[in-house]
Design a protein around this nucleic acid. Structure first.
Lengths: 384, 384
DNA sequence: ACATTTTGTTCCACGCTGGCACAAAATGAC
DNA sequence: GTCATTTTGTGCCAGCGTGGAACAAAATGT
C-alpha cells in the first residue's frame, strides 16, 4: 500500500520466495508479474502477494505499463529500485584499501582508495571501521559489508577466516568477519578476491545465464572462480580454482614454489615483466614494447598467452563450462597473441572441442574487485 | 500400520522429506527418530509422520531397541529394508554387457556378463531389453534401470544422449534412455561410467561424508567424477573431470590426440603395457615383471604413478576436495611406486598442502561400475 | 512408588501455496 | 458505442506440510 521512497538502512527479512523474485529481477531486469511467476516457478497468486510485500518494502517499483502488440490487459512491469539499499565492498591489497558503495543493481555510487599505514591486523580493522563509518554518513549508508583479498578464506564454523595472507604479512589465521562485524554493527562477508569478482560477474556481468562459469583474474597473481548450480564452488578449505601451477614447458620466471616452467612463470604481471626484460613494476613498458613488435617483449606475451590457454584448457576439461571469462589488469596477452592461446587449446583439448569453448574478455576495471565484494555481501543477504 | 513384507515392483511417490530421510539412512545407517530429525533438519513431529509412511510402504523397518547408558526411554532405531526394492545396473563395454541387480543398500544380488554379438545400437538395445526381462522374472525384479559406459552422456532436454561413443562404434548421438525406457517399461538413467562409480562411492562407499569428493577410474582410459554439494558435477555437456591430457613431460605411448607426454601416455593400461614393453593386452605380465623388480616394467609404473600424482594435484588445485579416491583395475602404480606419486604432489602442489591431501585406495571390483549404474538409477528416483 | 529423563505420537495453529472466481484493462468485431 | 475476447492482477479459500506443545510411553535412579 505505502511506498517508501527512502533508502533502507537495514535489510529486511525476506522469505525464500521474496529473495527468489528479487534475484530474478537482478538477473534478468524488469519483468511483468506473470513472467516472473513463470521464471521463479510460482503461481500468479503467490507472486502477487510477494510483489505487494516488496513494493511495500520499497525494494521494487511498478514501472510503466508495457504496450503489447497482442490483445489483453497490458502487463505492469516490476522494476528493481536500485537506490533502495546500498552495500559496501572492499578490496584489500598490500598497500591500499579500495572501497566502493554500490546500490542494489551493483552500480558504484561511491569510491575511495585509502593507503594502508601499516599491514597489522589491528590497523586494517581500524581503517575498515573508519571507512565504513565515513561512508555510512551520507544518503547511501550501506546495509552490509563485503571484503575481499587475494588469499584463501576458510569457513570455520560460522566464522570467515583469512588464512595466512602472505602479501599482508599475516602469519596467523585472522577471523576478519568476526573482527569487523561488531566494530561496524553490520553483517560482514569475507571472500577471495577472484571469487568475489566471479560472483559479481555471474550476477551482473555478461556471465549471467552461463553455467558452469569459470572466471580468471590475471594480475600480480592468477586466481579463478567457478560457479556451478548458481553457487560459487567453495571447496573443503575455500581453495578452489588454484590452477596456476600447471607445468607448460619452456623457461620463465621462477615462481614462489621454485618452478620456472609453470603457468605462474609466464602469466602473472611480474613474470611478463621479467620475461620481457623490463624493470620490475614496469609492466607498461613491456606492453608498449610488445605492441611495437619488439621481439623479446612479444615473446613474453606469447608465452603468457600459451600458458593461459593451457590452464583454460584444464578448467574446460575439469568443469565443462559454458563460458570462460578472462578478467584482471594483466590480460593483454589476449590481444597481443590470440593465436598462441588457440594453439594451447588445440594442444590440451580434444580436437573437436576447441571451437565449442567460449572465451570472453569482459570490460574490466580494478574497482570491480571491490564491487565484487559488495555483491558477495548482497548475495549473502539474499541467500539467507 | 500394516507392514508389507514383499519387495516392491514399483517405486512409490515419495515427498521431498521422505526421500531425505531415506537418503540419510542410506548414507549413515540405522538411526533413531530423534537423530534422524536432527540430521535432516525436521521436527520430531514431522519425522514421526514420515517414518510411519515409510514403514507402511515397507521401505523401512523398526529395529531392536537400542540400549543406552543414559536414562530416559531408549530410542527405537529405524533400519532401511534393503530387500524392499531392487535396481538393475549395466556397464557397457566394447564386447560385453555387465549387468547386476542390487537391493536398496546397493548390495549385488544378481550378476550377469553377456557378450555383445555386435555393437549396433539396435543389437545393444535388444540385448538390454532381453537382460532386463530375464532379471525381472525372479523375486528381485528391478524398479529402475541404470546404464553406464565410458563416454560422454549429454542431457538434451529430458533425454539422456550418448555422444559418439568410439569404443562402441556409434558415430551419432544415441538417445539410449529414450530407446530402452519404452522397451522395458522402467525408468532409465544413462551416465558416464566413472560418474556412476563416483555416485556409488559417495553414497555407499568410504566416500560418504567427504565433500568435495574426487574419484578416479583407471583402466583402459582415465576418467574422473566429482561430487560437490551432494551432487555430481555434470557440466554444460556432461563432460566434467576429463583431466587426462595434462602434459607431464617425458616420453610415453602416443595417445589418441597425438601426445606422447600427457597423462594418458603413462597412466592407462595400454600405455603401461607399451611403456613396459609387453604385448598389448598383457597387463598381467607387466605387473608381474614390475613386482619382480625388472627395470623397464618398474619404470613404466613409476612414470604412471608420477603422472597420476600430477592429475591428482590438478584436481586438488581445482576442486579443493576432502578426499581423492583412486579406483579401477589399473591402479597398481599406487602400490608399486607410491613415492613417485608423492614426488608429483610435491612438484605440482604448494608445499604446505601436500600432507593435507587425503588419497584413498578403496576396494575395487569391475562389477562396481554396473553397481554404480544401479545406484545412479536409485539416486534419480530419490531425487525426483 | 515416584520423580526424572528421553523418546514417540497426537493435536492443532500457522504459513505458504495454488486453484478458482472475479475484477480490471486493453483490443477487435459489429 | 457496445459487447465479446484476451490477458493481467487480486481476493478468497481449501489443502498441505510444518513445528510447537501437550501428552503417552519406556527406561533409570532415588
Amino acid at each position: 500500500m505505502t511506498t517508501h521512497a527512502q533508502p533502507r538502512t537495514r535489510w529486511p527479512e525476506l522469505g525464500h520466495a521474496g529473495g527468489l523474485v528479487l534475484l530474478e529481477l537482478l538477473l534478468h531486469g524488469a519483468q511483468s508479474r506473470v513472467r516472473l511467476a513463470e521464471n521463479v516457478g510460482l503461481s500468479r497468486a503467490s507472486l502477487s502477494r510477494i510483489a505487494r510485500e516488496l513494493l511495500d518494502l520499497g525494494l521494487v517499483v511498478e514501472g510503466d505499463v508495457e504496450l503489447r502488440e497482442s490483445r489483453g490487459r497490458p502487463p505492469e512491469t516490476l522494476h528493481l529500485r536500485p537506490e533502495a539499499a546500498h552495500f559496501l565492498g572492499v578490496k584489500l591489497t598490500g598497500d591500499t584499501l579500495y572501497a566502493v558503495v554500490t546500490d542494489l543493481s551493483a552500480r558504484v555510487v561511491e569510491q575511495r582508495a585509502v593507503p594502508l599505514p601499516s599491514r597489522g591486523v589491528d590497523t586494517v580493522v581500524a581503517l575498515l571501521t573508519e571507512v565504513a563509518a565515513d561512508l555510512s554518513a551520507g544518503a547511501t549508508a550501506p546495509v552490509a559489508i563485503g571484503i575481499c583479498l587475494a588469499g584463501d578464506v576458510l569457513r570455520s564454523g560460522p566464522d570467515l577466516v583469512v588464512r595466512r595472507s602472505s602479501f599482508l604479512g599475516w602469519n596467523e589465521d585472522v577471523p576478519l568477519a568476526a573482527l569487523v562485524g561488531p566494530a561496524t554493527g553490520l553483517p560482514v562477508t569475507v571472500s577471495n578476491d577472484v571469487h568475489a569478482l566471479t560472483a559479481a560477474h555471474h550476477w551482473f556481468g555478461s556471465g549471467v545465464a552461463y553455467e558452469p562459469l569459470v572466471v580468471y583474474g590475471l594480475g600480480a597473481g592468477i586466481g579463478s572462480g567457478v560457479v556451478v548450480g548458481g553457487e560459487l564452488l567453495e571447496g573443503a578449505h575455500g581453495r578452489t580454482g588454484r590452477i596456476g601451477h600447471l607445468r607448460v614447458g619452456g623457461t620463465g620466471r621462477v615462481c614462489e614454489n621454485g618452478h620456472d616452467d609453470c603457468v605462474h612463470s609466464f602469466v602473472t604481471i611480474p613474470s611478463i615483466e621479467f620475461n620481457a626484460g623490463v624493470a620490475p613494476g614496469d609492466y607498461a613498458t613491456a606492453l608498449r614494447r610488445a605492441r611495437a613488435g619488439e621481439a623479446r617483449a612479444v615473446d613474453a606475451f606469447r608465452r603468457a598467452a600459451f600458458a593461459l590457454g593451457g590452464i583454460i584448457a584444464e578448467s574446460v576439461n575439469a568443469f565443462d563450462p559454458q563460458m570462460v571469462s578472462v578478467m584482471g589488469e594483466g590480460r593483454d596477452m589476449l590481444d597481443i597473441a590470440p593465436q598462441e592461446l588457440r594453439r594451447a587449446l588445440l594442444e590440451y583439448l580434444e580436437q573437436g572441442d576447441v571451437d565449442e569453448v567460449r572465451i570472453e574478455r569482459p570490460p574490466f576495471d580494478f574497482s570491480l574487485y571491490a564491487r565484487g565484494a559488495a555483491v558477495s555481501a548482497m548475495r549473502a543477504l539474499l541467500a539467507g
